[in-house]
Design a protein around this nucleic acid. Structure first.
Length: 439
RNA sequence: GUCGCUAUAGUCUAGAGGCCUAGGACAACAGAUUCUCAUUCUGUGAACACGGGUUCGAAUCCCGUUAGCGACACCA
């Protein structure tokens, strides 16, 4: 059984758009294989918690159509799905590691650590814990019994770590470059590294697909799996979303929260479609497809490395108007790329123009003829209006393009609008005449 | 600084040694259609970062350079 997951931290006001992208991929892979998709909340950093962030992130994901099989909201066989509620578990496993000699206690103060690192940096060495406490474990244990704050550190063995990344292929790391990572913090919370490994194992996760920022810490995770004697999941690291200039996606340059895109009028379907295309391409080269189709054709092997550097603000676009939404006003459907454009495009239907994009003074006579003609129309529909207006255009001696532009501005105020005849039909005879008279 | 990942047009990408004088989509541009814009149709320009190898043959494999990104916390 394939089991995938996303493990976001509620450290922002909503889901990060990048998390949506990896969530989508994990979701698709699970669904494609009749597996399960899990959402686990990694809220182990008490200081960075944003109130309401978790709830918002969960509901946004749901609104987007990425539905978890197990999550803090709906529970599941491996509950709880919130790390802050699993503290005893991590503590137990950290202790187990210490007993096995794979980890050790450390009572070094933050001051000592920063001092140590500063010194190492000055000497141009890799900043690493100097294992001061490792050689004095008895003493450390005594300090702990006396109530001193402590952390548990992973004892990094001397090896080469080799693993095959689902997306990048074989990756090698020398453990000599790795720090004796803190596993259990002095506040009793686990660090990310202990938390993910323990939970992914306990929750029987088979495929860990996450952002590439985790690639450098994967060797630590592998060492942890080995220390516990656990079977490792498959790892896959996808590239990060970037700004158009390839810089890191930042709040300054782009919206980073998923709901901001929805609020801007992007259809959820379009957002997912767009995100799916980041770093992956449809085997048939298609650009427009829905979630079901994505799930059907998705394959990890088609995910590309380092290809997610796209601009995030413009989208797959107009196709969705026709495919996704039944617009109330068919006139504007093809003219809209985003839902938010609906109002500007149709505003004139509800409100007479208060300004004209081109001066209309010289057309007064022609407009008078238009009024007369409009009044004579019995069935006020677009077809009749069109015919009548072409007549007026001829009589007035104006070119069609000039005449219709003039009339369009008189009615809508704008040079660009939905089809004029249909718009006039919707407005009705009286309103049209009224608008022309007030020019 | 150290370690790691990556490098095809303006953008997103196809490409797993010969099928590539590199394909598609979006954007751009030109033309046709249209009462405006849009739509639709037709066409055009546009890329394998650089330098070395390996090979009969390299966008594809190897090495180096350059560039971008990531990671080096009791953050995730």
């Amino acid at each position: 059984m394939i089991r995938t997951r996303i493990a976001p931290s509620p450290t922002g006001k909503d889901v990060h758009i990048g998390s949506v992208a990896t969530a989508l991929m994990n979701y698709a892979w699970a669904k494609k294989n009749n597996g399960k998709f899990i959402i686990r909340i990694e809220d182990t950093d008490q200081s960075r918690l944003v109130p309401g962030g978790e709830k918002k992130m969960l509901t946004t994901l749901q609104e987007l159509g990425i539905i978890a099989d197990e999550s803090p909201l709906i529970g599941g066989p491996f509950a709880p799905y919130r790390q802050s509620e699993r503290l005893d578990i991590y503590k137990k496993y950290a202790q187990e590691l210490v007993e096995k000699g794979k980890a050790y206690y450390c009572t070094c103060t933050l001051e000592r650590l920063t001092e140590m690192r500063a010194k190492q940096q000055a000497e141009k060495k890799v900043p690493k814990y100097d294992r001061f406490c490792l050689s004095r474990q008895d003493e450390v244990k005594k300090q702990i019994e006396e109530g001193m704050k402590y952390v548990v550190r992973l004892l990094i063995p001397e090896t080469e770590i080799v693993f095959t990344d689902l997306i990048r292929g074989e990756v090698r790391f020398q453990s000599s470059n790795l720090d004796d990572q803190v596993l259990l913090k002095s506040d009793g919370f686990p660090t990310y590294h202990l938390g993910v490994v323990v939970d992914d194992h306990l929750m029987e996760i088979t495929h860990v697909m996450r952002g590439e920022e985790w690639l450098p810490s994967t060797p630590k995770h592998i060492i942890l799996y080995d220390a516990f004697g656990w079977e490792k999941p498959f790892f896959g690291h996808v590239s990060l979303l970037r700004n158009p200039d390839k810089s890191k996606l930042s709040k300054r340059k782009n919206p980073v929260w998923a709901s901001e895109y929805i609020e801007k009028g992007i259809f959820p379907e379009a957002l997912l479609n767009y995100l799916a295309l980041m770093g992956w391409s449809h085997p048939e080269g298609k650009d427009i497809f829905d979630l079901d189709e994505y799930i059907r054709v998705f394959d990890i092997k088609d995910v590309q490395t380092e290809k997610l550097k796209s601009k995030v603000v413009e989208y797959i676009g107009g196709e969705y108007n026709e495919k996704v939404i039944e617009m109330t006003i068919p006139l504007v459907r093809e003219r809209m790329k985003k839902l938010s454009e609906y109002i500007p495009l149709t505003e004139f239907l509800f409100k007479a123009p208060d300004a004209y994009e081109i001066p209309l003074e010289k057309y007064k006579d022609t407009l008078t003829k238009v009024i007369a003609k409009l009044e004579s129309i019995d069935a006020f529909n677009s077809l009749k209006i069109g015919e009548a207006m072409v007549d007026v255009a001829k009589e007035s001696g104006l070119k069609n393009s000039e005449f219709f532009q003039m009339l369009r501005v008189a009615i809508t105020g704008k040079k660009i609008s939905p089809p004029l005849n249909e718009s006039m039909e919707i407005l009705g005879k009286e309103e049209c005449i009224k608008r022309i008279k007030t020019v």
